[in-house]
C-alpha cells in the first residue's frame, strides 16, 4: 500500500491529510458544539440542527450581498458582521422554537425528535421557496483566499486555518461559559436535577430557553463558517445531522471535552482513510467503526459520573 511512495512523499501526504483532517475536525467541532449543548446538556434531540446551521449560512450569503451592493468599501470586513448576525438569527429562531414546541416535550424525548424533524422539513422548504433550490456560494474577502506555503510540498489554505481558529475560539468560549460562569452552573444544575434546581430558586424555564437559543446560535455561526468551505443548498443541513449526532454520542453526550475528542478521532480517521480508498467507503468504515465502538461502550468516550 505504501510501497510506491518515498519517505518524504509519505510524510507530506500524512501532513497534508492531517491538516485536511484538522479542518474537518474544526468543522465537526463547530457543528457538534451547539448540539452538545442542546442534546448533551438539555437532553433534547434537535433534528433541525442542520437547518439552523443552514440559516446561518444563508444569513452570511445575504450579508455578503448587501455589502457587495451598498458598502463595497467595507467588503473585507463583512464576514465578522455576518457571523454575529447568523448567531442572532439562529438564536432567535431557537428561542422561538423552544417556546413553541420544545418546552412542551421535555419529558418525551422521542417525540421531540419527531417534532423537530417536522420542523426541519418546514425550514428546508422555506429555504427552497425563498432562496431557490440551487446551491448558493459567497464571495470571500481577499484576506481569506489563498494559502500559506509551509514547505515545498505542504500548503495550508487560509480559510481552513480561519475555521480552525474559529472552532478553537468558540469551544474555549463555550467551555468558559459552561464551567466557569454562574449561568453554566445553573445550566448544569437544571440538567442534573430539574425539580431540585427549581427548588433552590433557579428559573428553569428561562435557563432552558437561553440554553437552547445559545446552542442554535452556535449552529448559526457554524453555518456561517461553512460558507467559506462549500456552497449552501436547502437540504445541505440534512447531510450533516447524522455525523453531528454520532460525534456527540460517541464523545459521551454530557462532556464537552468528549465531544471535541470524538470529533478529532472521527475526522482524522475519515480524512486519512479517504486518501487510500473512495470517499464513500472511508465514510462507511468510519461510521461502522463509531457504531461498533458505541455498541461496546454505549456511554461514549467520556462520561460524567453522577449519582442518580
Amino acid at each position: 500500500m505504501f510501497a510506491e511512495y518515498s519517505t518524504s512523499d509519505l510524510l507530506s501526504i500524512f501532513a497534508m491529510q492531517g491538516v485536511a483532517g484538522l479542518i474537518l475536525f474544526s468543522v465537526f467541532v463547530l457543528m457538534a458544539l451547539g448540539l452538545a449543548i442542546i442534546f448533551g446538556q438539555m437532553g433534547v434531540i434537535n433534528m433541525a440542527h442542520g437547518e439552523f446551521m443552514i440559516l446561518g449560512a444563508y444569513v452570511t450569503y445575504l450579508t455578503s450581498h448587501v455589502f457587495e451592493t451598498y458598502l463595497p468599501s467595507l467588503f473585507s470586513l463583512y464576514f465578522i458582521l455576518a457571523m454575529v448576525l447568523a448567531f442572532i438569527a439562529a438564536g432567535a429562531l431557537g428561542a422561538l422554537v423552544e417556546w413553541g414546541i420544545i418546552r412542551h416535550l421535555y419529558n418525551r424525548p422521542l417525540d421531540t425528535l419527531l417534532a423537530t424533524w417536522g420542523l426541519s422539513l418546514i425550514l428546508q422548504q422555506t429555504y427552497r421557496s425563498v432562496f431557490g433550490a440551487r446551491e448558493v456560494g459567497v464571495t470571500l474577502p481577499d484576506w481569506l483566499m489563498g494559502s500559506v506555503k509551509v514547505s515545498e510540498t505542504i500548503e495550508l489554505p487560509i480559510n481552513g486555518l480561519f475555521v480552525m481558529c474559529l472552532a478553537l475560539g468558540i469551544s474555549t468560549a463555550v467551555g468558559i461559559l459552561m464551567y466557569r460562569s454562574r449561568w453554566g452552573t445553573q445550566v448544569r444544575a437544571v440538567v442534573q436535577n430539574r425539580p431540585m434546581a427549581g427548588a433552590v430558586g433557579i428559573n428553569t424555564a428561562k435557563v432552558d430557553r437561553i440554553t437552547f437559543a445559545l446552542g442554535c446560535g452556535i449552529a448559526g455561526v457554524a453555518g456561517s463558517a461553512f460558507t467559506m468551505i462549500g456552497s449552501t443548498g436547502p437540504t445541505s443541513g440534512q447531510l450533516y445531522i447524522v455525523d453531528t449526532f454520532l460525534v456527540v454520542v460517541f464523545g459521551g453526550a454530557t462532556s464537552l471535552l468528549g465531544t471535541i475528542a470524538s470529533a478529532f478521532t472521527i475526522s482524522q480517521a475519515q480524512s486519512t482513510m479517504e486518501f487510500f480508498m473512495s470517499g464513500s467507503m472511508a465514510k462507511v468504515l468510519t461510521l461502522l467503526f463509531v457504531v461498533f465502538i458505541l455498541m461496546l461502550r454505549p456511554q461514549g468516550l467520556f462520561t460524567l459520573k453522577v449519582r442518580r
Binding site: L110, L246, S280, P298
Partner: peptide, 21 residues
C-alpha cells in the same frame, strides 16, 4: 431510547452510502 434511535439512524445512513458507493 434516544441512543438506540440515533444508532439505528446511523445504520440507515451507512447502508445507503454503501449501496450508492
Amino acid at each position: 431510547g434516544v441512543y438506540f434511535a440515533i444508532i439505528t439512524q446511523a445504520i440507515a445512513a451507512i447502508l445507503t452510502i454503501l449501496i450508492i458507493g
